[in-house]
Each structure stands twice: as C-alpha cells, then as structure tokens.
Amino acid sequence: MASSIFQVRTANECIRDARNIPIPQMLFDELWFEREVTILFADSNIGKTILSLQIAQSIASGKPIEGFGLSAPSQGVLYCDFEMSDKQFHKRYSDDYQDEFEFHDHLKILKFQQNLADINISDKTFFREIKKEVIAHRCKVLVIDNITFLSRDALESAKEANDLMKVLKQLKSELALSILIIAHTPKRAPYKPISLKDMAGSSGLSRFADAVICIGKSISNPNQIYIKQLKVRSAEFQYGEDNVILMTIKKVNNFLGAYFQGYDHERNHLKSAGPTELEQEILDLHSGNEMSRREIAQRVGCDKMKVQRTLQKYQDDAVST
C-alpha cells in the first residue's frame, strides 16, 4: 500500500521529473538562486539593509549590480521592512529629502500597521498575511528584514529558529518563492574570520537554509565591507575566506548602496591576530566571572595595566572596574 506522506521513485525517475522544472536563475550572482531560502547576516550598522534593498531593486528592475551576475528576469519583490521608518527611508534615498531616487514599481515595501500590537514569528497570522500579500502583488521574491525583530529571544532558541525555517520552506514550496532572510550576529571577536557559528540562531537557521552569506566590516576603511560565502548548494563554493568580495558603501545618484571593488583574503580586513595564551586567559576570566581587573591580574600573575590593555584591545565594550 502506497504511503500517504512519502513518494518513492528511482534515482533516474527523479532526474527525469527534474527535466520539467525550470533551471534556477541567478538573483545575486552565485550567492542566491531562484527558489532558494538564503540567509544574509551581519553585525549591526554594517550594511545589511543597504545591500539587501540594493539586491531587491536589482531583481525588481532586472538590472544586475555591477560586479555581480543576474540571469533572472525582472520580477515582483516583496520587501518586508521591519527596520526603517518612512522618513529614514526617504533620507537614505534622496539628497537631503529632495531629488529622490526612483525605484522600480516591481519592488513592494511591506511594513506593520502603525497601531499593530507586538507580534512574533510563532504567530500563524503573520505568515498567513505575508502569503496573502505575496499572492496579491504577484511577487516571486520575498525579503524579510530583519528576522530577529520578530523573535522574542533573538532566535537563540533552537526550536523557534527551526519552526521559523520550516514555515518559510513550506511557503517557498507552495508559491515557488525565492526568499532572502536578513539576520543578525551577536557581538563577535573582530580578529576572527566570520563563520556560521556567528549567526544568531545559527544551528536552527543554517540547517534549513539553501545558502548562507555574511557581511564583514573591513578595518582598512570605515565605508568598506566584504561579502563572504558560508553555505551553497546550487553552485561551486567561490567566496570563502581566501576570496571575499570587497565593496564600498556610498551614495551614487541618490541611491545608498554597496559598490563592487574586487576580491581579497579576509585576513587583510580583520583586526590583528588573536590573543596570546595569557591574553585569552584574561578575556575568559573577564567574560565568565564578576572579577575586578585587579583580581584578574592577581589570578594570572600580571599587573593591572596588562589586563586593562588586553580588554581594550579585544573588547570594544570593556567597562572600567
């Protein structure tokens, strides 16, 4: 008797059936393809929204971002903006609120109603309403900025992250959607290469994602960022730590975007090498215990100034004790 939930075919039948499925086209080079759930994450104030909205405008207009491939045709994009107010949006894409940039009409911006009470990602109403808007506006691309805004515990709960990804994967399958999720990274050591572990809710989110990319901030220039590829299924792995994509954030023709510069090794854009054994011991004691700097110095056998310099070197948020 055939199963009511499973389908069993030969491997050759799987391939034959796949011939009738359109080949996924590039949305953002080989970093994001059609009908994929992709995650883009970075720390605060680095450029997540700037880049994601730039990608959305590129897809809506059918015009590639310079330096990146785009093989998909112009199509509707529903951009869920849970970050900026209308006036902040206005300022970012204008010359001091005048001479505004003209976006493509295929790009739709979704925001919460002003009088809406708090909502979280476990609320079925949220996803039901998202689905209705996608269908109503005939969108094939969905961007959620920022998914941690909808979470009660910043997606640190594995169950919450898993539930979210399962719903989004189902939404992708039902509507043949391409989904880009913007996520956050907790405070990370600026001298270490970025990894999947740096993403909030990393295990739950990345497990179900088709691709994961991140943005890092370069130490060489306050306006320079880099893009790094962390997970890929539909293409070869190209943009790892030895070949990150360099971009500069600037406003061109009243459009604030990230503009391609070239490629480089990630290590050239990180702070100096990691801590020595003694410095690491100081950092561990500082983060794991409520100890004063004098007590830490006595524990590790150094002077208080060494503790002070170590914390200033590796922790931007070090608090004097």
Results as ranks from 00 to 15, higher is better:
F237V: 05
I296D: 06
F208P: 02
Q238T: 13
L278F: 09
G288C: 02
F237Y: 12
E281V: 06
R267C: 10
Q224K: 04
A235F: 09
K271G: 07
E279N: 07
E236I: 05
S287A: 11
K271T: 14
F260N: 00
D284N: 14
I245C: 04
N268R: 14
N221E: 10
Y226W: 03
M291I: 01
G204D: 08
L270G: 09
M247V: 14
I225N: 05
P275C: 11
E241I: 07
D284Q: 12
R294A: 10
Q229H: 07
D198C: 01
R293E: 12
G204Q: 09
M199T: 11
M199A: 10
G216A: 10
V252P: 05
P222A: 07
V252N: 08
H265N: 15
N243L: 08
H269T: 06
L256S: 08
S234H: 12
V244W: 00
G274D: 07
Q238I: 13
R294S: 10
N289G: 03
L270K: 09
F260R: 02
E279V: 03
I225H: 03
H286A: 10
Q280L: 12
E295L: 05
M291T: 05
K250T: 05
R233H: 13
A258P: 13
G288F: 02
R267M: 09
R207H: 13
S292P: 01
Y226I: 09
T248W: 05
G274R: 00
M291H: 12
R294N: 08
D210F: 15
S206Q: 04
I213A: 06
G288V: 08
L205S: 03
N243R: 11
K251W: 01
A211W: 13
V244R: 06
S203E: 14
D284S: 09
S234E: 12
